[in-house]
Every structure is written in structure tokens, then in C-alpha cells.
Amino acid sequence: MKATRELKTLMKAIVFETPGSPSVLKAQDIPAPTIQTETEVLVRLRAAGLNPIDTKLRARGTFYPDKTPHVLGCDGAGVVEAVGAGVQSFQVGDEVFFCNGGLGGSIGTYAEFAVVDQRFLAIKPAALSFAEAAAAPLVLITAWESLYDRGRLQAGQKVLVHAGAGGVGHVAVQLAKLQGAEVCTTVSSEEKANFVKQLGADSVILYKNTDVVDEVLAWTQGEGVDLAFDTVGGETFYQTIPA
């Protein structure tokens, strides 16, 4: 293992023992994670992302209820503190960001340190702050996998993105435009409509004021979209099918 200074044995973290309201979260000293394999990297965290999955796990419990205390957070950004002997792509001092842990198995990012396999790390873009980088991974992965890997979105296709001003939605709008697609998206207010237009949305539907299906069919000359991305679920899913 390569490191430039003595590593801490304890770290501060936000933990919880049993599910419940936000009041179950407590600041506590816990053992700091250590590198166990030659491809792992120890990251000193500078920022952690907060995602809906975190609040759900805090309220309902993690996927590994016997492993306590739980440390939530799957998105993080920070500085490489130490690297395993087999790590080639990163070195001590690199600024990185990642999505890993926080589901109840491995320690999440609501802590001073995290150990991450090099496969899940990326160099933080210089244009992004640590906070901005920590907010990006999970929403980017979700939108990327949905549009590119599963949806096979192609240039010239028309795509409907529900909740285009939301965490995943606003990334999906940009990725779809990057692919060369035409984008229609739904929002709840004029303020959000202006926001998604700035991101490149070609058509914006204020879903509280009009029929979404009618608007989509009008936009596509009655043909419907090639791909729909629903980040809302429930009744919205069923309303999307005719579009």
C-alpha cells in the first residue's frame, strides 16, 4: 500500500442503528476503513451526495440490517489518501469522485474516509467543486443507463423525459441532447420550464395545465415518442404509454 502519511484508525461519521426519522442519525467515532485488496483506494472525503435512496434506507432500514452501525451515502468526492499495490490509474493526492457503498454493506460516504475499488473511481473534473462532483454520480449513472444502455437512444429520435427539472431528469435532458435526440419534458412551473429550456429541451409541457398525452402527440404529429423516460412512476407511468 502506498500512502504519504500515517493513516487514522478512527474517523467521524454520521451513523444510525435502527430505522426512523432523521433524528436517528448521530455523529459518532467509528473505525476508519482500511485497504484490503491491491486494487482498492482510500479516499479522504470532502463532500457527500444526498439521494432519495438515502432517506428511504434511513426510514426503512438497509439491505444488510445486521451490519451496524449503518453509514449511508453512495456518492462522494475527495482526495486519494492511499492506494493498493495494484492501483495504476490513481495516485495519492488525486481529486476523485465516485458512487459506491452506503447500502448497509460497505461504509457509505457520510464519513471522513471511504475505501473504493479503483473500478468505481474517476478523476474529478477541474471545473467542478467537490460538492458539485459529489452530487453527480448516481443521477448520471441512472440517466445514462436508462437512455443509452437500456433505451438505446439514437440521434434524431424523439424522447419524453418526465420531471425534466428534477435530479435525474435534468441530467437526462442534457444526455439526450448530447446524443442528438429531440427532447420533450414535463415540469410543474414556468420557472422550471425556463430552466429546462436552458438545458436544451425542445418542447416543454406544464403538466398541471394541460393534457400531457395530447401535447406529446401534437409534438410528434401523432406518432408518439421513440423513447419515454419516467422518473416519477405511479399514474404517470400509465399516462405515458399512449404517448
Rank of each mutant, 00 (worst) to 15 (best):
K124W: 06
V92I: 14
Q174Y: 09
G105I: 00
Y110E: 13
S146Q: 10
A193M: 14
A155F: 05
G151Y: 12
L103Q: 14
S188L: 07
G61D: 00
D29R: 12
V232S: 03
Y110M: 11
A181D: 07
V87Q: 02
V87N: 05
V71L: 08
A134S: 14
G180E: 03
D75W: 12
A165P: 03
E81F: 04
K177G: 05
R58Y: 06
A32C: 12
G166E: 07
N209K: 13
I107Q: 15
S189D: 06
C99F: 12
L42W: 01
G49Y: 00
A59Q: 13
A176F: 11
H170I: 02
D117H: 13
I35L: 04
N194W: 00
A3K: 15
E38R: 11
A27D: 08
E81S: 10
F229D: 01
E6V: 14
E6H: 10
A77R: 05
P31L: 10
G151Q: 12
T185D: 06
F120T: 00
F120E: 01
G233F: 05
E132A: 15
L160C: 08
T236D: 00
V161R: 06
E112R: 11
E40V: 01
G108F: 13
G101T: 04
L7F: 11
T39Q: 12
G224D: 04
L153D: 09
S188A: 15
G61F: 04
A13D: 07
L153P: 09
M1P: 07
T37I: 00
S23H: 08
A122I: 00
C184W: 07
S106G: 13
A165S: 15
G61I: 02
E6R: 12
E132G: 09
A32P: 06
E132P: 05
F237Y: 15
A218K: 15
V80M: 08
G73C: 09
H162P: 00
E95T: 12
A165Y: 01
K208Y: 14
V161H: 08
D54F: 04
P65R: 09
F237H: 10
G234E: 10
I123P: 00
A243G: 05
V139G: 02
G76E: 03
L178T: 14
N209C: 01
G156L: 07
Q221W: 01
K67D: 13
T240M: 02
L217W: 09
Q221M: 03
A32R: 05
P52S: 04
A32M: 06
V80P: 02
Q118G: 01
V139Q: 12
V196D: 00
S129N: 03
V43Y: 01
A135V: 02
V24H: 10
V41Y: 01
A201L: 05
R152Q: 15
G104S: 10
A13W: 05
I53S: 13
F97T: 09
D117P: 15
E223T: 11
A47P: 01
L175H: 03
G169Q: 08
L175G: 05
I30D: 10
G86P: 03
A243Q: 14
